[in-house]
Design a protein around this nucleic acid. Structure first.
Length: 592
RNA sequence: GCCCACGUAGCUCAGUCGGUAGAGCACUUUCUUGGUAAGAAAGGGGUCAUCAGUUCAAGUCUGAUCGUGGGCUCCA
C-alpha cells in the first residue's frame, strides 16, 4: 500500500466506512466485540467477535444501516485521551484493551506498526467510538452512500495469529462515486469470468479428481497439447540460452533430504516417507539435491564452469488442505527449474544473463509489464557475508542494467541466499510472481561441492536456483486468466476448426484437414449433424482462433471461408494461403 | 490446519412443510443438409459426495468423513 494512497481522501472514505460498518454491526449485536478495521487496497474490512456467524442477509441489513448512518451526517471527531480514560472507555472491549496495552508498551499503533510517540487517540462518529489513529473524513457526508458496498464475510485470526481466536471479518468496498463502484464491481465480475477453474473445465483443458487426491492436476488432450507447446518453446529457448538438460528421479532416500536440510526445515511440507527395503524414501519437493549429485559425479574444473542445468522437474509438496486453489496452489507440479554453478567472477555475468533470459521468455507469453523485487540478507543466515555482498550487488546491478522497476525487501531473503523475484501484471492489472532467481550458500556447503580453480585448489562454487515460469501448472492457470481462454494462435490447442455446411462437404473438409495437418496446423473437422450456425457457436465458445467454413462455393473453388473468433471474416483463402496466414500469426505470436 | 458456506444427471442449476427426484445444455436415434453465435422430435442417463444417526418415512433434520468455495494462517 503506497504512501500516496494513505494520504488520499479515498483512504479516509474507506476508513470511515469501516467505522460506520462497525457501528451498524454493534447495533445489531450490542454484546459484540470489535477488533480492527483498516482500509485495504480496493476497500476496507473490520473484524468482529460475534455471538453467531453472519449471513448474507445480515450483510444486507448492515449495509442498509450504514447508508442511513452516512445520511445522518455524523462528524468524525478526533480526540487524544490518556491511558486510564482509554481503559475505562473500552472496558468491555478486550481486543481494544490489548491494543491499548500494545500501543503503550511497545510503541506500536493498532496495526502493529511502530510510531514515534505512543499516542492514544479515538474517533467519535455518532454513537460509535473507536480507538483509532485515523485519518478520517470530517463528516460522513463526504461518503457517497451509493458508492459503498459490503462484499463478503470470512474468518480471520485475531492479529493474524493461528493460535488466537478466529474472528469474523466483513469485507467492503467504497469509492468516491457510484460510477467508480460500478466499474470496480464490473472488474470483479470480469475476474470471476476469467477464473481459470471455470475455464479449464469449459475448454476441456484440465481436471482434478477428489477420489484420486486433491491438488493433483490431470491434463486433458487440449491442456496437454498446450503444455507440450510451452515445453517445446521452453526447451528451444534454453538450448539457445546455453543450458544443458538433466533428468532426475522422483524420489530419494532420507539421506538426501537429511543432507540437504529439508527434513529439518521443511518436513511438514513433504509427503510422508515410504518404506522400501527398510529404508525411508521421500518423494521430492525440490530438484536441487539431485542436480548436485550429478555435479559431484566427478571433479569439476573452473574451465568447465559455468554449468547451467535445466529440468522440467515434477515435485510434490504437502500443502495444507485449506490453501489449495485450482492450478495456482497445488500439491504436485512441474517446476521449470535450473541450477547454475559458477565461479565468483562469473556471477555478475550469469545473473544478468539469467535475468535477460527470464524477461525475454515472459515477454513471449504476452507479459510485458514486469517488476522486480530484490530480497536481501535476513538476520539469521548462512554463508560468508562477503558472498552475500557480492551476490546482492550482482543482483542489483543486473536489475539496473535491464532498467526494470524494482523494490528492495531488506532482510527479506531466505536464510540461504538473496534473490530476485519477477512479477508480471496480467490483462486485468493483477500482479503474479513468476520468476525467481536465488542464490544458495547452504546446499554447496552441505553437499561439500567444489571445483578446482586456477590455483589448483578446491573452491566452493556459487549456486543459483532459478525458475522462470515457476510451475507449469500455476503458470498455465495464470495464462488462462490472462487470455480469458482465448489464447494466441501459437498456444491455442485447436487453432482451426473446419465447418462443413452439409454432409456432402465433409469429404473435402477432410482433405483440407489433412493438408493443414501436414503443415502442422492443429485442426479438427466438425462432422456433426448440427447446422453451420451451431457449429460456429460451438467453435466460438471453445475460443478457437480460426473457423473455416466450407460449402459448395469453397469446394468448387478449392478454398476455405475464414472467420476469426472476433467475428471478423477474412473471406475465401486457398489452403496454401491460409497456411501462410497461420504461419505468420504463429511467428508473431499474434492473438488474432 | 482454522472459521464460515456449499456438494442433486457429463455441465449449469431447481427441488416448498420430511412423503421414494426435475429443467436446460450435452449425449444417442430419427427427421432436417443449412452460408457465419443454438433447426425439430423421441430416448437413455441419478446409491441426491460418503458413512452413521433421528423418524413409519431423509435429497430435505443431526453428527462424522471426504471434497469444493470465500478468507485467515502457512508457502525454509
Amino acid at each position: 500500500m503506497d504512501a500516496e494512497y494513505r494520504e488520499s481522501q479515498l483512504y479516509r472514505i474507506r476508513h470511515s466506512a469501516a467505522h460506520l460498518m462497525a457501528a451498524a454491526v454493534l447495533e445489531m449485536f450490542p454484546e459484540g466485540k470489535v477488533a480492527i478495521g483498516p482500509p485495504i487496497e480496493d476497500g476496507f474490512y473490520y473484524d468482529f467477535d460475534l455471538p453467531r456467524p453472519l449471513t448474507m442477509d445480515d450483510l444486507e441489513k448492515i449495509e442498509a444501516r450504514m447508508r442511513e448512518l452516512i445520511a445522518e451526517h455524523h462528524d468524525f471527531i478526533y480526540q487524544e485521551i490518556d491511558p486510564d480514560e482509554a481503559r475505562k472507555l473500552f472496558a468491555d472491549q478486550p481486543y481494544k484493551l490489548e491494543l491499548i496495552a500494545d500501543i503503550l508498551e511497545r510503541g506500536t499503533d493498532e496495526y502493529g506498526e511502530r510510531t514515534a510517540q505512543p499516542v492514544l487517540s479515538i474517533y467519535k462518529s455518532g454513537p460509535f467510538v473507536d480507538l483509532c489513529r485515523g485519518p478520517h473524513v470530517a463528516n460522513s457526508k463526504e461518503i457517497n452512500p451509493k458508492a459503498v458496498k459490503l462484499l463478503s464475510v470470512a474468518g480471520a485470526y485475531w492479529r493474524g495469529d493461528a493460535d488466537r481466536p478466529m474472528l469474523q471479518r466483513i469485507y467492503g468496498t467504497a469509492w468516491p462515486t457510484p460510477k467508480e463502484l460500478r466499474a470496480y464491481l464490473k472488474w470483479r465480475e470480469e475476474v470471476q469470468k476469467r477464473d481459470h477453474r471455470k475455464l479449464i473445465k469449459q475448454l476441456d483443458l484440465l481436471s482434478f479428481h477428489e477420489e484420486a487426491g486433491p491438488g493433483l492436476a490431470y491434463w486433458h488432450p487440449k491442456g496437454a497439447m498446450m503444455r507440450k507447446i510451452i515445453e517445446d518453446f521452453w526447451r528451444e529457448r534454453h538450448l539457445e540460452g546455453g543450458y544443458d538438460f538433466v533428468v532426475t528421479p522422483h524420489l530419494g532416500k532420507a539421506w538426501l533430504w537429511q543432507t540437504s536440510g529439508h527434513l529439518d526445515f521443511y518436513r511438514e511440507s513433504m509427503y510422508s516417507p515410504m518404506d522400501v527395503d527398510g529404508q525411508e524414501y521421500f518423494i521430492k519437493p525440490m530438484n536441487c539435491p539431485f542436480h548436485i549429485l550429478i555435479y559431484k559425479t566427478r571433479l569439476r574444473s573452473y574451465r568447465e564452469l559455468p554449468l547451467r542445468w535445466a529440468e522440467l522437474g515434477t515435485v510434490y509438496r504437502y500443502e495444507k488442505s485449506g490453501v489449495l486453489h485450482g492450478l495456482l496452489r497445488v500439491r504436485g507440479f512441474t517446476q521449470d527449474d535450473a541450477h547454475i554453478f559458477c565461479t565468483p567472477d562469473q556471477i555478475e555475468d550469469e545473473i544478468l544473463r539469467v535475468l535477460r533470459f527470464s524477461i525475454s521468455i515472459l515477454n513471449a507469453f504476452g507479459f510485458e509489464d514486469i517488476q522486480a523485487y530484490l530480497s536481501t540478507r535476513p538476520e539469521k543466515a548462512v554463508g560468508e557475508p562477503e558472498r552475500w555482498e557480492q551476490a546482492q550487488a550482482s543482483l542489483q546491478r543486473a536489475i539496473e542494467a535491464e532498467g526494470i522497476a524494482y523494490e528492495v525487501d531488506e532482510g527479506g531473503g531466505a536464510f540461504y541466499g538473496p534473490k530476485i523475484d519477477l512479477k508480471i501484471k496480467d490483462a486485468l492489472g493483477r500482479s503474479w510472481q513468476l520468476s525467481t532467481i536465488q542464490f544458495d550458500f547452504n546446499l554447496p556447503e552441505r553437499f561439500d561441492m567444489s571445483y578446482i580453480a586456477e590455483d589448483g585448489a578446491e573452491h566452493r562454487p556459487y549456486m543459483v536456483h532459478r525458475a522462470l515460469l515457476g510451475s507449469l501448472e500455476r503458470f498455465f492457470g495464470i495464462l488462462v486468466e490472462h487470455y480469458a481462454g482465448a489464447f494466441p494462435v501459437w498456444l491455442a490447442p485447436e487453432q482451426a476448426r473446419l465447418i462443413p455446411i452439409a454432409d456432402r462437404h465433409v469429404a473435402y473438409a477432410r482433405q483440407v484437414e489433412d493438408q493443414l495437418r501436414q503443415a502442422h496446423i492443429r485442426v479438427y473437422t466438425d462432422a456433426s449433424s448440427s447446422r453451420m450456425n451451431a457449429k460456429i457457436r460451438d467453435a466460438q465458445m471453445q475460443k478457437i482462433p480460426y473457423m473455416l467454413v466450407i460449402g459448395d462455393q469453397e469446394v468448387e473453388a478449392n478454398t476455405v471461408a475464414v472467420r476469426l473468433r472476433s467475428g471478423k471474416r477474412l473471406g475465401a483463402l486457398s489452403p496454401a494461403d491460409f497456411i501462410a496466414h497461420v504461419a505468420q500469426a504463429v511467428a508473431q505470436r499474434a492473438l488474432e
